[in-house]
Amino acid sequence: MTGELLEINDLTVEVSGRIVLENVDLRIEKGETHILFGPNGSGKSSLIMTILGFPAYKVISGEIIFKGKNIIDLPINERVNLGISVAFQNPPAIRGVKLGDILNHWIKDESTIDSILERINFPREFLRRDINLGFSGGEMKKSEILQAIVQGGDLLLLDEPDSGVDVENLRLLGEFINEMLKGRAGLIITHQGHILRFIDADIAHVMLKGTIVCSGRPTRILSQIMSEGYGWCMKCPRRKRIRENMI
């Protein structure tokens, strides 16, 4: 086993007969926080769903190695139980299943849950509500982040934890996530990069049409995207420049 926590090699994935990820390479080491940028529909969420093993995302080629083990044939729950936690972008509502039922699967101790609730300013009554049913956008984000943290994996996959979140809550969530990332690894998808103000990220990648085309220092990539749009990445002469833009 190398120092890598997650190692994705030459991953190509199709969903209902269409290629959504193509030749993706990604290495995340212990303690690193990676940011993933990319326009709508570029395949960012698909990458997370594939790491988790959602059956709709068919791996055509490549491997996903987590903690030294190729996890490609494991069902979702077994991957998660190896230490991968997730906050989804669009989680489904499930009638009758309470948020509390899910949290109690991981933590029986109510006081630990209470302290997180307080930290992210999320009212306790949500524990007794049907998961995601009638949650507002911001409430859904809090619920997802809460679940990811309670799951306590070594790798946090956070899919757009900042979209639709107001300024005040963004600070709460951002600072909390940053703290939780200490000693863990993270892969955070963000659109506008708002959350970067609170998070010490090590490296950012840009995904275009299912491929990681460029990697580099998060603030630098973000400011380029902000000023020139994703067109800048298209023009990038050296696609797939892993870690060269770091300094």
Partner: peptide
């Protein structure tokens, strides 16, 4: 699948949904 991503086995997930 959502519940499996929360660590439940397929069987546990189904039973949790039915129970709920």
């Amino acid at each position: 699948h959502y519940l499996m991503a929360r660590g439940f086995s397929e069987r546990e997930a189904v039973s949790l949904i039915v129970r709920g």
